[in-house]
Design a protein around this nucleic acid. Sequence first.
DNA 1: ACAGTTGTTGGCACCATCTGCCAACAACCG
DNA 2: CGGTTGTTGGCAGATGGTGCCAACAACTGT
Lengths: 212, 212
Amino acid sequence: MTDVATEKPRRGRPPVSDEQRRLQRLDISRHAVRLFSEQGVAATSGEQIAQAAGVSERTFWRHFPQKESCVEPLLTKVVDAFCAVVRAWPREVELIDHLREAYSPLEDTASDEDIDAVLSVVRLTQSERALRAAYLMLRERAEDALAEVLGERMGRPASDINVRVRAASMSAALKVSTDEVARAAAGGVTTETLEGHREQIATALRDLSQML
Amino acid sequence: MTDVATEKPRRGRPPVSDEQRRLQRLDISRHAVRLFSEQGVAATSGEQIAQAAGVSERTFWRHFPQKESCVEPLLTKVVDAFCAVVRAWPREVELIDHLREAYSPLEDTASDEDIDAVLSVVRLTQSERALRAAYLMLRERAEDALAEVLGERMGRPASDINVRVRAASMSAALKVSTDEVARAAAGGVTTETLEGHREQIATALRDLSQML
DNA sequence: ACAGTTGTTGGCACCATCTGCCAACAACCG
DNA sequence: CGGTTGTTGGCAGATGGTGCCAACAACTGT
């Protein structure tokens, strides 16, 4: 008997849209990442980030329950891009071929200047332990999403072991190649950097199949 | 010109052996894990753990720079066991066959009662975000060790992309099957639980090869 | 036995992280 | 305009975590 969309005519201030929340988080995230890379994570206080972003410390902590989660809004972009491509994977095409064709990391989901930011955050996670932990947690959330897609494609529940192993392995391969491309892009991002990434992930998956 | 083992005759109190440090950490770890599972991580203060382990809060923080790292001494056991088996992998044998033959998780590295503890910690990481993050970081360190082994076997540096992808994927497959066996062992550990794990990881790797 | 040297421990002060609570305010309604 | 609901910021307070220092423990040579 719980109504779904049949609500009372609404009274009082409406809650802000999820989209606006997302943008606000993203804005804070950019400031935080800049500070993190300039002076290190440990040396950057929550107060400092809040001030840079123009909000009170209290609302900053409301947006990001932990300091390190500041990087999530930017980091999700690289993972979401991959999930989107996998979701669009036609059944009749080989996965490697589909990736090589359709996977242009970030180019769709992120603006040009954000690509720089995202890659620099990935690089940051390689030296800052706290950020790395946040990154790995994020990737595991994405692993679940991947399992959903793969499971549906294989006609099995996403909780199936077989499905989970595939999702985890694909995610791991993506992680390694993403780390690599971020390292390679340290001195400025070129189009061929990203194309290198596409090739990277394709060959990574191919290598995988020869392992056993 | 830096002497390696040719030191001055040593004066003053000798530093405690690494082995003793390890045991002390392990002891504290057991107390911490018990408290964590009894009342949750957030509700367990560092002071409480220190008191339970019979050390001052100050030395507790010296042993574990962050509260969550309390689980490392126990969690490494499950990862180390796998690394040891991979290290002992003869060149002429198929990896899957070797694992099915030689991999008896924990049975060698951990005492019987510790097996319970280790598996319960793995289960804990599935509900406690902070512990999960620590677990993932730990696994990534093990990934490096794995890459060393695989790299040497393939005649390439451990930093080689191909090597890293394989290490990451194997590690991921192990992660999923370890999570699964921990879940399955929720109601008491039996021998077949662990043998199930062995079979789990073997089939997991086989599945992997059919993905592409 | 004693002084000199080095490593470990615990206590204290201190800053940073993060939370609960509440008053102020903003955005909608009739 | 008053009523209602959601968001913000300030403040107090507990916990996490570090630097510093004095006390002590374990060794060496005389």
